[in-house]
Design a binder for these strands. Structure first.
Length: 728
DNA sequence: CTTGCACTACTA
DNA sequence: AGTAGTGCAAGA
């Protein structure tokens, strides 16, 4: 093979390569799938010492300068042509160490994306000044205030963190974990460095009727305890939570457990203090400097515990012993940028790649977590039924049937039973009122019984284009002319549009002597983190429920019909998770805590809450998914782009055995309505699904199919999204 | 025989 | 993606 002709790059002067390991293997930041491999460059002598695995560099790629990361130094290259020199060493900080690079590669393969896309998610933008910042003086940090709103610190239990022997000699004090089936064993194995995997369903906090705390075993105390145990064994810990409020809540528990925020107040704790007591908070909504500072503190090992929101799933943690995802069902754990990785999957891959323990935790149970349990990949950790019953509030369903017994009063949106619960609760403390987010939920449902309508063929949701009377499946495009409801055999469909506002005003008028507080992203006061234990009505949208000191005396979950309506794959899980989040802030039944579900909600979801049995619901959902061939029982890939291009990819892709193609269907409504799913006008989407066992093969073949089709054909680009959450 | 721009090939 | 190199059509 003749060596390719190469012109001297303009302005390129000859450079002498380093004597030792003159070749750098580089992953370049180019967003093109077909260019997603490593490239070899020469290390100039001037950079001989600074170029190590993980550093950022600038390289000449084609006719442009691009950013890249060095993966390794080599003595020789397998590339046959001439190598070009590295252009610039951006920084000697190894921001993509080997373990991170391996994780990025594995995640890219899992999601059929490019490594460079994943690296972009994993490494925060550089903030040069932060790199040279000196560490804080030890004296400066002593007596520093822990996180705002911290409750009184619990008595320090066990040896001071890190003060004891570095490796595992401290006895494992599992604390409240001992009360859970499988809890103590999980922590013990995790602390001994085993790659155990657990799925844990947390209980609500323990409060008395008077609103005092009986024990520090709310979920944040439990997680803090797990952090302490594994950290005291000498290993690192990573906890990923949905949003900043949850991170704050865990921060307070960590502070109470004797740990310290290593980068609070814009300075990094000295190494010895940080290593022993420090944790680092990695939050997407922090500024670039603070984000990079926290990242560096983790990277440099100044703190061995990292907590944060979804990008933290990639954080470098040396000797990672335990990775935790809290509320893995929360949509915030799904990254919105290509290749759309999910925190739970990233941590699961990490558990396999780095051999660390994994804890998938939440108040509820995701279908995906249930699948991990069912397959035997993870162990179930949870309290006995008797304990659950003792800790959960009493849940009453005020459905239409229930309310009908009241007679004419049932016409009101809030039945008298709910008013009574609120009034009685207010005598004991704060009462939470959860209202579905303002706005409209478009749903196509049976005109008679309101059951959401789905495709007789593939069980996709049925859409009804305006002006058309024939429903069409939004997955496979089939016209369901002779649709009839599988439940009540009705044959009419209707678009359900429900509004949900006014509630706060209504309640405020009814209880004039009680303060009404409102918490919500769009409300004037924003989202409240906490409220006091004083009697008050607290109206909140899902996800914005403040924690009440001493727990709520009661909660009303309004408009259950709206909360559980929807055609999306996840609504039942979403609904029960939103309800559990609210209900878990209420005092236990034994302390008089009551939750009322108001309205005609899905009976399955309502039942799961009444019995406080999220695992049962997840198990049932999983059965259904298996039967219908939906994720996580199968793996799916969505191909979106111009029809011609999507068809070309499908034609040129060798799909694994057992794979089936649904669609393609237009991604924009036929009536010219607003484009959905970020698709361009006229784009189509095809879904390819394959049995879980063929998942790797499916990802690999789709990736090859999308990459192999050159841009040369000009039919447009096809976007690939594995395991889409919204199959709608 | 020039100039302008669409088309495509390539990136170490 | 982004760019340089190639080929063909209109202009002088």
């Amino acid at each position: 093979m003749p060596a390719p002709r190469r012109r001297p790059a303009p302005g390129a002067q000859a450079v002498t390569a380093a004597d030792d390991l003159p070749v750098a293997r580089v992953v370049v930041e180019v967003p093109v799938l077909r260019l997603d491999h490593t490239y070899d460059y020469l290390v100039p002598v001037s950079m001989a010492d600074g170029v190590t695995a993980g550093v950022r560099v600038k390289v000449r790629f084609g006719a442009q300068d691009v950013d890249g990361y060095v993966l390794e130094r080599l003595a020789t290259s397998e590339h046959e042509g001439t190598l070009r020199p590295l252009r610039r060493l951006v920084s000697t900080e190894p921001v993509l160490p080997n373990a991170s690079a391996r994780l990025c590669r594995v995640v890219a393969e899992h999601y059929a994306g490019s490594m460079s896309d994943v690296v972009r998610l994993a490494v925060p933008p550089r903030h040069a000044r932060t790199e040279d910042e000196p560490l804080a003086e030890a004296a400066v940090t002593t007596g520093e205030q822990p996180h705002n709103g911290s409750r009184s610190p619990m008595a320090p239990d066990g040896p001071a963190p890190g003060a004891s022997a570095p490796h595992g000699s401290a006895p494992t004090d599992a604390g409240p974990w001992s009360g859970l089936a499988g809890g103590e064993a999980f922590l013990r194995h995790a602390a001994s460095g085993a790659a155990v995997r657990g799925v844990w369903t947390a209980l609500p906090g323990r409060w008395t009727a008077g609103g005092s705390v009986l024990a520090d075993d709310g979920w944040e105390d439990m997680v803090a305890r797990a952090v302490r145990v594994v950290r005291d064994s000498g290993r690192g810990v990573l906890v990923v939570l949905p949003d900043a409020r949850d991170v704050d809540r865990l921060s307070r528990a960590l502070d109470a457990a004797g740990l310290r925020d290593a980068t609070a107040s814009g300075r990094t704790l000295p190494d010895d203090v940080g290593r022993a007591h420090g944790y680092v908070r990695l939050l997407a909504d922090d500024g670039p400097a603070q984000r990079y500072r926290a990242f560096l503190a983790a990277l440099r090992g100044h703190a061995r515990v990292v907590i944060g929101t979804r990008a933290a799933a990639f954080a470098p943690v040396a000797e990672l012993g335990l990775a935790v995802v809290w509320e893995d069902d929360d949509p915030l754990h799904a990254e919105q940028r290509a290749p759309y990785p999910h925190v739970r999957e990233v941590l699961a891959l990490r558990s396999e790649a780095e051999g660390c323990a994994l804890l998938v935790a939440g108040l509820g149970r995701s279908v995906e977590a249930q699948a991990l349990v069912r397959s035997g990949w993870a162990h179930e950790i949870g309290a006995a039924r008797a304990v659950v019953r003792e800790r959960a509030p009493r849940v009453r369903a005020l459905t239409r049937v229930e309310v009908a017994r009241e007679g004419p009063a049932a016409v009101a949106r809030i039945p008298s039973a709910a008013w009574r619960i609120a009034r009685e609760g207010l005598a004991q403390g704060p009462v939470l009122v959860q209202v579905p987010r303002a706005g409209y939920v478009p749903v196509t449902a049976c005109g008679t019984c309101r059951e959401p309508a789905d495709c007789p063929d593939c069980h996709g949701p049925l859409g009804l284009a305006s002006g058309s009377s024939t429903p069409q499946c939004r997955w496979c495009g089939r016209l369901a002319a002779a649709w009839s409801c599988p439940r009540c055999h009705g044959s009419t469909l209707r678009s359900v549009l429900v509004g949900s506002e006014r509630t706060a005003e209504e309640l405020g008028r009814a209880f004039t002597n009680v303060p009404v507080r409102i918490s919500g992203a769009r409300s004037a006061g924003g989202v409240l983190a906490t409220v006091s234990g004083a009697s008050a009505l607290v109206v909140a949208t899902p996800g914005a429920e403040p924690v009440a000191a001493g727990g709520y005396a009661a909660a009303l979950l309004l408009d259950a019909g709206v909360a559980t309506a929807g055609t999306q794959l996840r609504t039942r899980q979403d609904a029960v998770r939103r309800w559990l989040t609210a209900a878990s802030l209420v005092r236990p039944a034994t302390a008089g805590g009551v939750v009322a579900v108001v309205g005609d909600g899905d009976e399955v979801v309502t039942g799961a809450l009444v019995r406080w049995d999220p695992a049962g619901l997840a198990d049932r959902e999983l059965d259904e998914r298996v039967e219908l061939g939906l994720p996580p029982a199968v793996r799916v890939g969505a191909l979106t782009g111009p029809r011609q291009a999507v068809m070309a990819v499908l034609a040129e892709t060798t799909l694994p055995p057992g794979a089936t193609v649904l669609g393609p269907v237009p991604v924009t409504p036929a009536d010219g309505g607003a484009p959905v799913l970020g698709g361009e006008l006229g784009d189509v989407r095809a879904i390819v699904r394959a049995p879980r066992g063929e998942g790797r093969l499916l990802a690999a073949s789709l990736r090859a199919g999308v990459a192999g089709r050159g841009a040369r054909r000009g039919a447009g680009t096809v976007r690939l999204h594995m395991d889409v959450a919204d199959l709608v």
